[in-house]
Amino acid sequence: KLLSSIEQACDICRLKKLKCSKEKPKCAKCLKNNWECRYSPKTKRSPLTRAHLTEVESRLERLE
């Protein structure tokens, strides 16, 4: 599967780190437990900047 097509777990399953069936409108866990089942939009991760990478590398060197 391509990364862009990976389905996201519902908010509660993601928060509780449960295996989500990803069914809509309610996944199996939410249906069974009568929880409100919501699927928040995916958040875009910002790409690493060179400055951040350099900072992490220098912190790693100090720890070694």
Rank of each mutant, 00 (worst) to 15 (best):
Glu7Val: 09
Lys16Cys: 06
Val56Lys: 00
Thr54Asn: 10
Pro25Cys: 02
Arg59Asp: 00
Lys42Val: 09
Ser21His: 04
Glu55Val: 11
Leu15Thr: 11
Glu57Asn: 01
Ser4Phe: 14
Lys22Val: 07
Thr43Tyr: 06
Leu53Tyr: 04
Cys20Pro: 01
Pro25Met: 06
Leu63Ile: 15
Ser5Trp: 08
His52Tyr: 13
Asp11Gln: 09
Leu60Tyr: 13
Lys42Tyr: 15
Ala9Tyr: 02
Gln8Trp: 08
Lys29Cys: 06
Cys13Lys: 02
Leu63Asp: 03
Ala9Cys: 02
Cys20Val: 01
Cys20Thr: 04
Pro25Trp: 02
Thr54Pro: 04
Lys22Ile: 00
Leu60Asn: 09
Lys44Gly: 03
Cys30Glu: 03
Lys1Thr: 15
Glu61Arg: 11
Glu55Phe: 10
Cys10Ser: 01
Ile12Val: 13
Cys30Lys: 01
Asp11Arg: 00
Glu57Gln: 06
Asn33Gly: 13
Leu48Val: 02
Glu36Phe: 12
Asn34Cys: 15
Lys19Met: 00
Arg45His: 03
Leu48Ile: 07
Cys27Thr: 00
Ile6Thr: 12
Lys1Leu: 13
Leu63Trp: 00
Ala28Met: 11
Arg59His: 09
Asn34Gln: 15
Leu2His: 14
Arg59Gln: 13
Glu64Leu: 09
Leu3Arg: 08
Lys42Cys: 07
Thr49Arg: 01
Lys1Ser: 15
Asp11Gly: 04
Ser4Pro: 10
Thr49Glu: 00
Leu3Lys: 01
Leu18Tyr: 10
Trp35Phe: 13
Lys32Trp: 07
Asn33Phe: 11
Lys16Val: 00
Asn34Val: 10
Lys44Trp: 10
Thr54Trp: 05
Pro47Gln: 05
Ser21Asn: 08
Glu61Met: 14
Leu3Asn: 10
Cys37Pro: 00
Val56Trp: 02
Ser40Val: 07
Glu7Gln: 09
Leu48Pro: 04
Leu63Met: 13
His52Pro: 00
Glu36Thr: 13
Leu15Met: 12
Ala51Glu: 08
Leu48Arg: 02
Ser46Gln: 04
Ile6Tyr: 11
Ser58Thr: 09
Leu15Arg: 07
Ser5Thr: 08
Glu36Lys: 12
Ser5Arg: 09
Lys19Thr: 07
Ser4Arg: 06
Thr43Asn: 09
Thr43Ala: 14
Ile6Glu: 10
Leu60Val: 15
Lys19Gly: 15
Ser58Gly: 13
Lys24Leu: 10
Ser46Cys: 03
Lys26Arg: 15
Asn34Lys: 13
Arg14Asp: 02
Cys10Ile: 00
Leu18Trp: 11
Leu2Phe: 07
Leu60Thr: 06
Lys17Arg: 08
Lys17Pro: 02
Glu55Cys: 14
Leu3Ser: 08
Cys37Asn: 02
Pro25Asp: 08
Glu57Asp: 06
Pro25Ala: 06
Cys10Tyr: 05
Gln8Ile: 08
Cys10Leu: 00
Cys13Ala: 01
Glu64Trp: 08
Glu23Leu: 09
Arg50Phe: 00
Glu23His: 14
Cys30His: 04
Ser58Val: 14
Glu61Gln: 12
Lys24Phe: 15
Cys13Phe: 01
Ala51Phe: 10
Cys37His: 02
Ile12Pro: 12
Lys24Thr: 15
Asp11Phe: 01
Lys32Cys: 09
Asp11Tyr: 04
His52Phe: 09
Leu31His: 14
Ala28Ser: 07
Ser21Ile: 00
Gln8Arg: 07
Leu31Gln: 10
Ile12Thr: 10
Ser5Leu: 13
Ser21Cys: 03
Leu15Glu: 11
Lys22Leu: 05
Leu60His: 03
Lys42Gln: 12
Cys13Glu: 05
Lys44Pro: 13
Cys20Asp: 02
Val56Asp: 07
Arg45Cys: 02
Lys26Ile: 15
Glu57Thr: 04
Ala51Lys: 12
Lys16Leu: 03
Glu55Ala: 14
Ala9Met: 00
Lys26Met: 14
Cys20Gly: 04
Arg14Leu: 05
Leu48Gly: 03
Glu7Lys: 08
Ala9Gly: 09
Lys17Ile: 04
Tyr39Cys: 01
Thr49Pro: 01
Cys13His: 02
Leu15Ser: 09
Arg62Met: 15
Lys26Gly: 14
Ala9Phe: 00
Arg62Val: 14
Ala51Val: 15
Pro25His: 00
Asn34Met: 13
Asp11His: 04
Ser4Gln: 10
Pro25Val: 03
Leu31Asp: 14
Ala9Asp: 01
Arg38Ile: 15
Cys10Arg: 06
Lys26Gln: 15
Ser46Gly: 01
Ala28Cys: 12
Cys10Trp: 03
Lys24Trp: 15
Arg62Tyr: 07
Arg62Asn: 08
Glu64Asp: 08
Asn33Asp: 09
Lys26Pro: 04
Cys27Gln: 03
Cys30Asp: 01
Arg14Asn: 01
Thr43Lys: 06
Ser5Tyr: 10
Cys20Tyr: 06
Cys13Ile: 06
Leu63Ser: 00
Lys32Gly: 11
Lys16Ile: 02
Leu48Asp: 01
Glu57Leu: 02
Thr54Ile: 08
Ala9Gln: 06
Lys16Gly: 00
Ala28Gln: 14
Arg59Val: 01
Ser5Met: 12
Asp11Asn: 07
Glu23Val: 12
Arg59Phe: 02
Lys1Gly: 15
Arg45Phe: 01
Val56Thr: 10
Thr49Cys: 05
Leu15Trp: 14
Lys32Val: 11
Asn33Cys: 12
Thr49Asn: 00
Cys20Arg: 02
Glu7Ile: 10
Thr54Ala: 09
Cys30Trp: 05
Ser40Arg: 06
Lys19Cys: 06
Lys24His: 14
Leu60Ser: 06
Leu31Thr: 10
Tyr39Ile: 06
Thr49Asp: 01
Lys17His: 08
Lys22Cys: 01
Glu57Lys: 02
Leu48Ser: 03
Arg59Glu: 03
Trp35Glu: 10
Lys44Arg: 13
Ile6Gly: 09
Trp35Ala: 15
Lys22Phe: 05
Arg38Leu: 15
Pro47Leu: 02
Leu18Ala: 15
Lys44Val: 14
Glu55Asn: 12
Glu36Ala: 14
Glu7Trp: 11
Ala9Ile: 07
Glu7Tyr: 04
Leu18Cys: 08
Glu7Leu: 10
Lys42Ser: 09
Gln8Asp: 05
His52Lys: 06
Arg62Lys: 09
Leu3Glu: 14
Thr49Val: 05
Lys26Cys: 12
Leu31Glu: 13
Trp35His: 13
Ser40Gly: 09
Glu23Met: 12
Arg45Glu: 07
Gln8Tyr: 09
Glu36Ser: 13
Ala28Val: 12
Lys19Glu: 03
Thr54Phe: 07
His52Trp: 11
Leu53Asn: 02
Val56Met: 08
Ser5Cys: 11
Cys37Met: 04
Leu63Thr: 02
Thr43Glu: 15
Leu53Ser: 01
Pro47Ala: 08
Lys19Gln: 06
Leu31Phe: 14
Lys42Gly: 09
Ser4Ala: 14
Cys20His: 01
Thr49Trp: 03
Glu61Leu: 15
Lys26Asp: 12
Glu64Asn: 07
Asn34Arg: 12
Leu18Ile: 07
Leu2Cys: 10
Arg45Lys: 08
Leu60Arg: 00
Glu23Asn: 14
Leu15Asn: 11
Glu23Lys: 12
Cys27Tyr: 02
Trp35Gln: 14
Glu61Tyr: 11
Leu53Arg: 07
Leu31Gly: 14
Cys27Pro: 05
Leu53Val: 11
Arg45Leu: 05
Thr49Met: 06
Arg38Gly: 13
Gln8Cys: 04
Ala51Asp: 05
Lys1Trp: 03
Ser5Ile: 12
Ile12Phe: 15
Cys37Tyr: 07
Glu64Tyr: 15
Pro47Thr: 01
Ile12Cys: 11
Pro47Ile: 02
Arg38His: 13
Ser46Lys: 03
Glu55Pro: 00
Ile6Trp: 12
Asn33His: 12
Glu57Pro: 06
Lys19Arg: 14
Lys26Ser: 11
Tyr39Ser: 04
Leu15Ala: 11
Lys32Thr: 14
Glu23Pro: 04
Cys10Val: 02
Asn34Leu: 13
Glu57Ala: 01
Ala28Gly: 09
Glu61Asp: 13
Glu23Gln: 14
Leu48His: 01
His52Ile: 02
Ser21Pro: 08
Glu36Tyr: 08
Ser58Trp: 13
Leu2Ser: 14
Pro41Ile: 07
Ser4Asp: 12
Lys16Glu: 00
Ser46Thr: 10
Cys30Val: 05
Arg14Ala: 12
Leu31Cys: 12
Lys17Ala: 03
Leu15Ile: 09
Arg50Lys: 01
Arg45Ile: 01
Lys44Asp: 05
Asn34His: 11
Lys44His: 10
Glu61Phe: 12
Pro41Phe: 03
Lys24Asn: 15
Arg14Val: 01
Arg59Gly: 05
Lys42Pro: 15
Leu60Gln: 05
Ala9Ser: 05
Cys27Arg: 07
Thr54Gly: 07
Pro25Arg: 05
Glu36Met: 12
Leu53Trp: 05
Lys24Asp: 12
Thr49Gln: 06
Glu55His: 10
Pro25Ile: 07
Leu2Arg: 09
Leu2Thr: 11
Lys16Asn: 06
Ser46His: 03
Leu60Glu: 00
Cys37Trp: 02
Pro41Trp: 04
Ser4Glu: 14
Cys27Met: 01
Lys24Ala: 13
Leu48Trp: 06
Pro47Asn: 01
Arg45Ser: 01
Lys32Glu: 06
Leu60Lys: 09
